[in-house]
Amino acid sequence: DEIHIHFNGVTIEFRGLTEEAKKALEEAIKRGASEEELKELARRLIK
């Protein structure tokens, strides 16, 4: 299970995320999180 985020022309790929983690990332994107914020969020979620 993986998710691809297209962000300002950059694709960020995450693997092994739970549904909750995906929802958290989607919410962050909707509120306009920066690419760095998304990566940091993903790091926290994957652990």
Rank of each mutant, 00 (worst) to 15 (best):
D1C: 14
D1N: 12
D1F: 15
D1K: 10
E2F: 15
E2A: 14
E2G: 11
E2S: 15
E2W: 15
I3G: 08
I3M: 10
I3N: 05
I3P: 06
H4E: 04
H4A: 03
H4K: 11
H4W: 06
H4D: 03
I5D: 01
H6Y: 04
H6W: 07
H6G: 03
F7I: 14
F7L: 13
F7S: 03
N8D: 08
N8A: 07
N8E: 06
G9W: 05
G9F: 02
G9Q: 02
G9V: 02
G9N: 05
V10T: 10
V10L: 08
V10F: 06
V10R: 07
T11A: 04
T11Y: 10
T11R: 13
T11N: 03
T11F: 09
I12D: 02
E13L: 13
E13Q: 11
F14L: 12
F14R: 00
R15E: 10
R15Q: 11
R15Y: 14
G16S: 07
L17F: 09
L17N: 01
L17G: 04
T18H: 06
T18G: 12
T18L: 03
T18A: 07
E19D: 09
E19R: 12
E19Y: 14
E19S: 13
E19H: 13
E20P: 06
E20R: 11
A21N: 10
A21Y: 05
A21K: 02
A21S: 10
K22P: 01
K22I: 13
K22F: 13
K22D: 01
K23E: 09
K23C: 05
K23A: 12
K23V: 11
K23P: 04
K23Y: 14
A24S: 09
L25I: 10
L25N: 00
E26K: 10
E26C: 13
E26R: 10
E27I: 09
E27G: 07
E27V: 07
A28K: 02
A28W: 13
A28Y: 11
I29T: 02
I29A: 07
I29E: 01
I29R: 04
K30S: 12
K30R: 11
R31C: 04
R31P: 00
G32Y: 05
G32R: 02
S34W: 03
E35Q: 08
E35L: 15
E35A: 14
E35D: 08
E35V: 14
E36F: 09
E36A: 10
E36V: 07
E36C: 04
E36H: 10
E37Q: 07
E37C: 04
E37R: 03
L38E: 00
L38W: 07
L38R: 00
L38T: 01
K39D: 03
K39F: 15
L41Y: 04
L41W: 05
L41E: 00
L41S: 00
L41I: 06
L41P: 00
A42Q: 02
A42Y: 15
A42R: 02
R43I: 09
R43C: 05
R44W: 13
R44S: 07
R44N: 05
R44E: 08
L45Y: 13
L45G: 01
L45F: 14
L45M: 09
L45A: 02
I46V: 07
I46N: 13
I46D: 05
I46G: 05
I46M: 14
K47Y: 15
K47F: 15
